[in-house]
């Protein structure tokens, strides 16, 4: 039967060294997040589609009907599923909450795209504090997460959804999902409607003083001032010139509201980390709490590491009987050896 020899399009599993590496990288991230005081969270893999309809692209998610006839969706975005989980389990946030996760996500990616449908996202969310220190903490944590996975050469591109909205609305244009998409790719009908000056601003990447100059009178608006201040603070916190301001980063997902960022590494064709502030999202799920977070594409980072080294086979236990070999193996395993009977 043909199904025995193949997997559904876009899916794949991991075995042996690749599975060991995934676990090892996940463990490194878990240790880092826990040192920073973040608690683990695990979200359901399936939920009702209608709950997420506002935020997901129906062409990019897997949907089907469950036994009761309800339309359900597979987890495609860990942040969304986590927000929903918090809404179900908490009635209010009395103090800031720090959470981390590492989970598989499944979304439809066109077949000629280098990333398969099955992703592995790890990330952290800081819930309950308005813009400011929480944003800076999350960005520094994201950079440390990359470093703990062995990536030292990276650049953080920091933008602001809030500032982008100010610039758009000052020109009398309407903010929309289509406009976000068009700014992202620098083309499309909404992009063509923007003035040449605004189109130029949305392509500006660089140093804070250059960006301030490009923004002209808008450089002193609160949204721009916070972006520039954040750049200064984060550079002083150790990121240095690995952080640049990028007015093209406006956050592709519709729930972002404030600072947004992506992290790029050389030689890879996609951002490996994306994140930002999403103050209105949790309210939609029943909790009034500002939030900021990031997700890291661990699956992509595994690709960057190349093929894992083959593992040396475990040693064989010695002894003339099974019980002797078991005793020998127990002694050696207690010293950290890998031993098979």
């Amino acid at each position: 039967m043909p199904e025995m020899g193949r997997l559904p399009a876009g899916t794949m599993g991991l075995a042996f060294e690749e599975a060991i590496r995934r676990l090892e990288l996940r463990n490194r991230l878990a240790a880092l997040f826990e040192r920073w005081g973040y608690l683990p969270a695990a979200t359901p893999i399936v939920d009702f589609y209608d709950v997420y309809r506002e935020w997901v692209n129906p062409q990019h998610v897997y949907r089907f009907t469950d036994r009761e006839g309800d339309l359900v969706v597979l987890r495609s975005d860990a942040t969304l599923f986590l927000a929903r989980l918090l809404g179900l389990q908490l009635s209010e946030i009395s103090q800031p909450l720090r959470l981390w996760y590492a989970e598989e996500t499944i979304s439809h990616i066109p077949s000629n795209h280098p990333v398969g449908d099955t992703g592995f996202q790890a990330g952290a969310e800081y819930i309950g504090l308005p813009q400011g220190e929480a944003d800076w903490e999350v960005i520094i944590l994201a950079s440390e997460a990359l470093e703990c996975l062995g990536l030292q050469d990276y650049r953080i591109h920091l933008g602001s959804r809030a500032l982008a909205r100010v610039l758009i609305e000052a020109e009398g244009q309407t903010w929309s999902k289509d406009l976000i998409r068009d700014i992202h790719r620098l083309s499309g009908p909404c992009w063509e409607n923007l003035s040449a000056n605004l189109r130029h601003q949305f392509q500006c990447i660089g140093e804070p003083d250059q960006i301030a100059q490009q923004l002209g009178p808008f450089a002193s608006c609160p949204e721009a001032a916070f972006l520039l201040q954040s750049c200064d603070i984060l550079r002083s916190a150790g990121l240095g010139e690995r952080l640049v301001i990028d007015l093209n980063e406006v956050g592709l997902l519709s729930y972002y509201t404030g600072l947004v960022f992506k992290i790029y590494v050389p030689g890879y064709h996609e951002a490996v980390v994306s994140g930002g502030r999403y103050d209105g999202l949790l309210k939609k799920f029943g909790i009034e709490a500002p939030s900021v977070g990031f997700s890291l594409q661990q699956g992509l980072i595994e690709v960057l590491h190349g093929s894992p080294e083959p593992q040396a086979p475990p040693a064989a236990a010695s002894g003339t009987s099974w019980l002797e070999r078991l005793a020998n193996a127990r002694r050696r395993r207690a010293k950290g050896e890998r031993v098979v009977l």
Binding site: R155, I205, K262, Y264, P266, H269, E270
Partner: peptide, 10 residues
């Protein structure tokens, strides 16, 4: 441009 390439080599 590939978006990430543009960002890295801007």
């Amino acid at each position: 441009a590939n978006r990430a390439y543009w960002k890295w080599h801007y």
